[in-house]
Amino acid sequence: RGFLEKAAVKKMAKAIMADPNKADEVYKKWADKGYTLTQMSNFLKSKTAGKYDRVYNGYVIHLD
């Protein structure tokens, strides 16, 4: 289950990176699912340092 969630989160993160207008909708879905910042950090780990920082930081702001 965790692997599928991670894959889904990364897919949506890539969608945000391609079209930032989708961010609020995606952040709301993640918040509704109760994803914590720790979970998001783990889901968005990448071999490329900083690749998903913008998405993660946007989610931090959304939760605030």
Rank of each mutant, 00 (worst) to 15 (best):
R54T: 14
D19N: 09
V60H: 08
M12T: 04
R1P: 15
D24V: 09
D32W: 07
G34E: 04
L44T: 00
K29Y: 13
V60C: 11
N21Q: 10
A8F: 10
F43T: 03
G2P: 11
Y56H: 03
Y59H: 01
Y59K: 01
R54Q: 14
Y35E: 00
G2Y: 15
D53P: 01
G2E: 14
L37Y: 04
M12H: 05
Y27I: 02
D19R: 04
K22P: 01
A8G: 09
G50M: 05
Y52P: 01
T48G: 06
M40S: 00
Y52A: 02
L63G: 02
E5F: 06
V9G: 01
K45W: 09
F43L: 08
Y56W: 06
A13Q: 01
F3P: 10
F3D: 14
I16M: 05
Y35H: 03
S41H: 13
V55P: 02
N42C: 15
A23S: 08
K33T: 10
F43P: 01
G34F: 04
S46Y: 08
K6C: 14
H62C: 04
S41D: 08
Y59S: 00
N57C: 15
M40I: 15
V60R: 12
A31V: 07
K10G: 03
K33F: 10
Q39T: 07
E25C: 15
T48S: 10
K22E: 06
K14D: 15
T38L: 12
N57H: 11
I16T: 01
T48V: 13
T38K: 11
P20A: 07
P20V: 06
E25N: 07
D19G: 03
K10V: 14
E5Y: 06
K11G: 06
T48A: 08
L63W: 05
A18V: 10
Y35Q: 00
A15W: 07
K33P: 00
V60I: 09
D19V: 04
K14M: 11
L37D: 04
K11I: 09
D24S: 10
Y52W: 07
L4S: 14
A31W: 06
A18K: 12
D53T: 07
I61H: 13
S46I: 06
G34K: 06
Y27Q: 00
F43I: 08
H62L: 04
G58Y: 03
Y59Q: 00
M12W: 07
E5L: 09
S46G: 08
P20Y: 08
F43Y: 07
K45N: 09
G2T: 12
K10E: 07
T48Q: 10
N57E: 14
G58E: 05
N21I: 08
A7H: 12
A23K: 06
E25D: 10
T36L: 03
Y52R: 01
K11A: 12
K29W: 10
L44Q: 01
R1L: 14
Y35M: 05
L4W: 14
G34L: 04
V9T: 02
M12I: 04
K51M: 10
M40L: 12
A49S: 11
Y59T: 01
R1N: 14
G2K: 14
N42Y: 14
G58K: 01
K6S: 11
S41P: 01
Q39V: 07
A13G: 02
N57V: 09
V60F: 06
T48N: 10
G58T: 01
V55H: 02
I16E: 00
K33D: 06
A15G: 05
L63Y: 03
R1E: 13
V60E: 09
Y52S: 02
K51Q: 09
I16A: 06
K33E: 08
Y56G: 02
R54E: 15
D32Y: 08
N42G: 11
A49P: 15
F43R: 02
K51I: 09
F3H: 13
D32I: 09
F3R: 14
V9Y: 02
G58I: 03
N21F: 09
A15Q: 12
A13M: 03
D19M: 05
V55Q: 02
G58N: 04
D64R: 15
Q39M: 13
D53K: 05
W30K: 00
K28F: 04
N42R: 13
Q39D: 12
F43E: 02
Q39I: 08
K6F: 09
W30F: 03
R54S: 15
N57W: 15
K10Y: 05
W30C: 03
A23N: 02
I61P: 01
V26H: 03
K14E: 13
G50H: 09
K47C: 12
Y35A: 02
K33H: 09
Y59W: 03
G58F: 03
I16R: 00
E5P: 05
A23Y: 02
L63N: 02
S41G: 10
A15T: 10
L63A: 03
K6L: 09
E25I: 07
W30M: 02
R54P: 10
V55I: 11
A15H: 07
D53G: 04
D24G: 11
D32C: 15
T36D: 07
D24W: 08
A8I: 13
K11R: 14
D53Q: 07
T36C: 05
G58P: 02
K6W: 10
T38C: 15
Q39G: 03
Y27V: 01
S46D: 15
D53V: 05
F43W: 14
R54G: 12
A31E: 08
D19Q: 06
L44R: 00
F3A: 13
T38H: 11
K11N: 09
G50W: 04
Y52C: 03
I61E: 13
H62P: 00
D24N: 11
D24I: 10
A31H: 13
D64V: 13
K47W: 06
D24P: 14
K47Y: 06
A49N: 11
Y27P: 00
T36Q: 03
R1V: 15
K22I: 15
V26D: 00
A49G: 09
Y56N: 01
E5S: 06
H62Q: 03
R54C: 15
K6M: 13
D19H: 06
K28H: 10
K11F: 08
K22A: 08
A15E: 13
M17T: 04
H62W: 15
D24T: 12
A15P: 01
K11T: 07
T48C: 12
E5T: 08
A23H: 05
V26E: 03
E5A: 09
V60D: 03
D24M: 10
Y56M: 09
R1I: 14
Y52K: 01
W30Y: 02
G2C: 15
T38Q: 14
D19A: 05
K29C: 15
A13E: 00
K22Q: 09
S46R: 05
S46H: 07
G50K: 06
L4E: 11
G34P: 08
K47R: 10
H62Y: 15
T48M: 08
K10P: 01
N21D: 10
S46Q: 05
R1T: 14
G2N: 13
V55S: 01
L4T: 12
L44D: 01
Y59V: 01
K28T: 09
G50D: 06
A13F: 03
T36Y: 02
T48Y: 08
S41Y: 13
F3K: 14
G34D: 03
V9I: 10
V55D: 00
M40R: 00
S46E: 07
A18D: 12
I61S: 12
S46A: 06
V26A: 06
R1F: 12
K45S: 12
A18G: 06
Y27C: 02
S41A: 15
D24K: 11
V26L: 05
A31Q: 10
V55A: 06
Q39S: 04
S41T: 10
A18M: 11
L63P: 01
M40P: 00
K28A: 09
K28L: 06
A18S: 11
K47N: 12
D19Y: 07
Y52D: 00
G34R: 05
H62E: 02
F3V: 10
V9D: 01
A49R: 11
V9W: 02
A8N: 10
A7N: 10
D64M: 15
K29L: 14
D64P: 03
L37H: 04
D24L: 12
N21K: 12
T48L: 07
R1S: 14
T36R: 03
A15N: 06
S46F: 06
H62G: 02
S46W: 06
M17F: 05
K47E: 12
Y59N: 01
M17W: 04
K28S: 10
I61C: 14
K11V: 08
L4A: 12
L37V: 09
A13Y: 02
Y27R: 00
Q39F: 04
Y56T: 03
R1Y: 07
S46K: 05
A8Q: 11
P20G: 07
A13S: 03
V26S: 03
M12N: 06
A18H: 11
A31K: 09
A7E: 10
D24F: 12
F43C: 06
K45E: 11
D32V: 09
Q39W: 04
D19L: 04
A15F: 06
K10Q: 13
K22G: 06
G58W: 03
M17D: 03
L37P: 09
Q39C: 08
E25G: 08
M40E: 00
D19F: 06
K51E: 12
Q39Y: 03
D32G: 08
Y59F: 05
